[in-house]
Nucleic acid binder design. Structure first.
Lengths: 336, 336
DNA sequence: CTGAAAGCGCTTACAG
DNA sequence: CTGAAAGCGCTTACAG
């Protein structure tokens, strides 16, 4: 063990300022009025001693950790960085620390509880990073919980997500109405992934509203992964499947699609239109520049923290927050 | 405040198992031998009550938080995600929680100490996310510290970074030797950024070892940002500066370079070779596919945690860890 | 191998 | 507005 110089305690501050520790605590937390003159002396002592209250002592005495927990299935993808940025900034602004944990295999360690009531005041749960049983247990004991990109099912846990269906519908409408596409492939995301399910629904609605048949042959695996998407489209081409557009579950899949189309000498967008979802930073730099749907990921993070903090404060939270998506027209659809 | 169902304490477990709380503590921590039979009874009670020790109580009693802190200048860039993945995984494997904090403006809040000896057992400090004074203070009081992509200067703080100079040298060698380039632009990163400084040094060494003059006119601003890089190259072209290759401080800058070169109808790689640094996930999908240097970012994260944990355990840590970079040849240099 | 007890450094009623 | 004191839930010498 390294010998950390014992840092000063509230008692040291109290002594130096000539007050009780209760008074020091009060000026730090602003819980009770304190004479201006006393407060000043205490502040001076705090600065002189470089005093910072120990989180553990505070937490034990106050029953609050002042910490938010973030549970993720994995740390990767274009999604991840902006979402965490939003969460971190919002947590910081609200005065909370942020503990983060990736659950590599949700169902493998049912007994490990890295984040919970023992070390946080509330949890942000992204997609299916937590097994149902633990989610229910936490909800039952009353730990504030917010779900991101995953609906609360029967449990009434506030959920934040984006307008997947509407975004998908708009971009497919565009492919049909502006570019006259009729045989549009949809590349699904990971199985049961809610974002993908809603995007698929928007895709179907768009087709139906234009009197086009939803053809089961036009659905393929994309799994939000460029390699999978690439293979899928290559297979489609080899099998001679006819299609004049591909709506990808996300931008990553779109990258794979662009790759396999180029390999097969199918000109994008002349012969095939391609559209993505998310609008990740590099989407404008693909060739052709990717037409996609912008999802306000960072905003999802901020909103999730906002709702969680409300819950922690005992206030009412919104059951469902649906953030608007935006159609981003570039060149891969056929526009100039 | 929400009424969280009071979770069970060590006393509840002790009572149910018919032992003292000291014994429960021992079986949880494995600090002292306990009869197998007793241990079993305690384990059963723990599971029955879904007992998880409160981090605050533990921390207060043991003087250890079991938490690592990660300080970043900002949450963004292709860099960020893999680095955090490595850090999180390694921290988890070592049994530590991970607190993360972005210092938006390092010099604006000299008195805020979001992460420090009051809530962590040690800190990972990325690039210049912390002002010197605070770094020195933390080092002085003995808080375990590890620097990432930033050297410890005179302080003896372990540092983890990658072989920037060697990587840069190899890729510039390649441009000169294989593709016969002689007027190679270097696009610098943010001012005083150590990664960029080392890459620049490698660039200079390569030129010199080939008997080429280092021409000050060939240096431009890239700032690890595609927009800045785009503007810089556009200016170079408008001013009629002659160059036959661009070595970019990082892949982001390379994206901007590709964009401005295309806009000016300069064919890459026929007329101009382009090379990047980092090998971010989308580098293979740019057109042409980007020749670059792969930096093992995730490994940097893992290694940083490893060294920090050593320090926390009172063991010796390596003063400097230099992770090897790898030349990734694709098409933007002129190779097939 | 096990227990009683002190103590970690704060917050928070309770008095005054 | 301020202080004395209890108590938060653990860990860890100290005894036995």
């Amino acid at each position: 063990m390294p010998k950390i110089t014992p840092s000063s305690t509230i008692a040291d501050v109290a002594e130096k300022a000539g007050v009780s520790i209760a008074t020091v605590s009060r000026v730090i937390n602003g819980t009770t009025p304190v004479t201006a003159e006393t407060a000043e002396r205490v502040q001076a002592a705090i600065e002189e001693l470089a005093f910072v209250p120990r989180a553990a002592a505070r937490g034990l005495a106050s029953h609050r950790t002042n910490t938010l927990g973030l549970l993720l299935p994995e740390i990767s993808g274009a999604f991840f960085s902006p979402m965490l940025r939003g969460i971190e900034a919002a947590a910081r602004e609200a005065g909370f620390d942020l503990l983060i944990h990736a659950m590599e295999e949700p169902h493998r360690h049912p007994h490990r509880r890295p984040l919970g009531e023992h070390n946080t005041d509330g949890l942000l749960v992204f997609t299916d990073s937590l097994e149902d049983a633990e989610l229910i247990r936490l909800h039952k004991i009353g730990l504030p919980l917010v779900l991101m990109h995953q609906s609360g099912e029967s449990l009434d846990i506030p959920t934040i997500t984006v307008e997947n269906k509407m975004g998908a519908r708009r971009i497919v409408d565009h492919l049909i109405e502006v570019h006259g596409r009729r045989r549009i492939v949809y590349l699904r995301g990971p199985e049961r992934h809610e974002d993908s399910v809603w995007r698929e629904r928007g895709y179907c609605e768009s087709l139906e509203s234009h009197g086009l048949r939803v053809d089961p042959a036009l659905f393929g695996e994309g799994r939000f992964n460029h390699e999978i998407a690439e293979v899928t489209i290559r297979d489609f081409i080899e099998r001679g499947l006819e299609f004049d557009a591909v709506f990808c579950g996300d931008d990553d899949a779109a990258i794979g699609v662009l790759t396999s189309l180029r390999a097969a000498n199918r000109i994008v967008p002349d012969e095939v239109s391609v559209a993505g979802f998310d609008d990740q930073p590099l989407a404008p730099y693909l060739s052709p520049a990717l037409t996609t749907v912008r999802a306000p990921i960072e905003q999802v993070g901020r909103e999730a923290v906002k709702q969680l903090v409300r819950l922690i404060r005992g206030e009412q939270a919104d059951p469902l927050t649906l953030l608007p998506t935006e159609l981003i027209i570039r060149n891969s659809c056929g526009c100039k």
